[in-house]
Simulated assay, not measured.
Amino acid sequence: MMLPVLLLARALLPECRDPDAGRLDLASVVLFLLALLPLIYAVKTVAAHGPDAGTALALAAGAAFATAFVRRQHRLEHPLLDLRLFRNRAFTGPCSPCCWA
């Protein structure tokens, strides 16, 4: 099902690249994966088997790598994920507390 979509997408969708885009920061990619994978593991393991020391360790490791990732993104001229987007109400609007009522 996806093969025709992938083949047609290249022909039908216009190319749109940022001419001022920076290079891919592999250190940020690695930090992001080191943050995300233990967090996902911890959440899935706690849901299936309940909390234990291993999941607590995975959660702590994921949180530490997430903190390192966020700090790195704030320092880079061309971040992998521009965290300033989360300050924009149009970007975060649907998640704002005024929509929860």
Rank of each mutant, 00 (worst) to 15 (best):
M1Y: 09
M2Q: 12
L3K: 10
L3C: 08
L3T: 14
P4N: 08
P4Q: 06
L6T: 06
L7F: 07
L7G: 10
L8W: 12
A9W: 12
R10E: 10
R10Q: 10
A11T: 13
L12G: 04
P14L: 08
E15G: 02
E15F: 06
C16Y: 12
C16M: 08
C16S: 15
R17H: 10
R17V: 14
P19F: 01
P19D: 08
D20K: 11
D20L: 14
A21V: 12
A21T: 06
G22E: 04
G22I: 05
R23G: 05
L24S: 05
L24R: 08
D25R: 08
L26H: 10
L26I: 13
A27H: 11
S28K: 03
S28D: 05
S28H: 02
V29H: 03
V29F: 12
V30E: 08
V30N: 03
L31M: 07
L31S: 03
F32A: 15
F32N: 09
L34C: 11
A35G: 03
A35I: 01
A35N: 02
L37E: 07
P38C: 07
P38I: 05
P38T: 03
L39P: 01
L39W: 02
L39F: 03
A42R: 04
A42L: 02
A42T: 02
V43G: 06
V43F: 08
T45H: 12
T45R: 15
V46Q: 07
V46K: 06
V46N: 07
V46H: 02
A47M: 13
A48I: 03
H49N: 13
P51Q: 15
D52Y: 03
D52T: 04
A53K: 08
G54I: 01
G54K: 11
A56D: 12
L57R: 14
L59S: 08
L59D: 01
A61I: 14
G62F: 04
G62V: 07
G62Y: 02
A64F: 01
F65D: 00
F65I: 00
A68K: 01
A68E: 02
F69I: 01
F69T: 02
V70I: 13
V70Y: 01
R71A: 14
R71M: 07
R71H: 07
R71L: 13
R72C: 03
R72M: 02
Q73N: 05
L76T: 06
H78Q: 13
H78M: 00
P79Q: 03
P79R: 04
L80H: 06
L80K: 05
L80P: 04
L81V: 15
L81K: 01
D82C: 04
L83I: 15
L83C: 09
L85N: 13
L85G: 11
F86A: 09
R87M: 10
R87N: 13
R87P: 00
N88T: 05
R89W: 13
R89Y: 11
A90R: 15
A90G: 11
F91W: 11
G93Q: 09
P94C: 01
C95Y: 15
P97W: 09
P97Q: 04
C98E: 15
C98V: 14
C98N: 01
C99L: 15
A101F: 12
